[in-house]
Computed example of a mutant assay.
Amino acid sequence: MSRAEAERQGRRGESLAAWYLWLTGWRILARRQRIGAGEVDIVARKGRTVAFVEVKWRATARALDEAIDARRLRRVARAAEALVPRFAKPGDDVQIDVILLAPGHWPRHMANVWQP
């Protein structure tokens, strides 16, 4: 797969993840927030919880099992830490979530996956 095709698939996955979050009661605050060496794909709020969401799209469900690792989560956590003042209010809970997507499968939403 070319870099351009991978980029298109990634953006499509982020759009699907945003729809999924919205349909399950989350409000999308921002998408593709880049800061320093990291990036957060989606920032969403549900009640008093703000989630910084990493989205992974793979061609097969089997490939999703290896799509996320501690190194990637650390990068997202560093970016989220820098973005918290912009999106969270005092008293909000903040978490790092992951949404895994593959064709023909329901999104797999894993909440609060990072514990520093």
Rank of each mutant, 00 (worst) to 15 (best):
Q115E: 11
H109T: 03
R86Y: 13
D41T: 01
R11H: 07
Y20T: 02
Q33D: 06
A63R: 15
A59D: 12
T60F: 08
E14N: 07
R48F: 00
D69C: 14
Q115I: 00
S15M: 08
L101S: 02
L23S: 13
E39H: 03
A88V: 02
A63F: 07
K89F: 09
I99E: 00
R78D: 06
W22L: 05
G10Q: 09
R58Y: 08
L83R: 13
Q115Y: 10
L23V: 02
E39N: 03
H109A: 04
A88H: 01
A79Q: 09
F52Y: 13
D92C: 02
A80C: 05
V76K: 07
G38W: 01
V76R: 05
R11L: 12
M1F: 03
V55C: 04
R71A: 15
L64T: 10
P85N: 15
E66W: 13
A111Q: 14
D41C: 06
E7C: 00
R108M: 10
V43P: 11
L64D: 11
A82L: 15
A61Q: 13
R62N: 07
Q95N: 09
R3W: 03
A30H: 10
A51R: 02
L16V: 02
N112W: 02
E54F: 01
E66M: 13
A77K: 08
D41M: 04
D69V: 10
R71W: 14
V94C: 06
A18G: 12
A82V: 12
R108V: 12
R11T: 01
S2P: 11
R31W: 02
W57I: 00
A17H: 12
W57S: 06
D93M: 05
W114V: 01
M110F: 08
H105D: 12
G13F: 04
E5H: 10
A30D: 14
T24Q: 09
L16A: 11
W19S: 14
A88E: 03
A37G: 10
Q33N: 10
R12C: 00
T60P: 13
A30W: 09
V98A: 14
A6R: 15
R45T: 00
T60R: 15
R72I: 15
G104V: 10
V50W: 00
A30T: 05
A82N: 11
L83V: 09
G38Y: 00
Y20C: 03
K46A: 03
V84H: 08
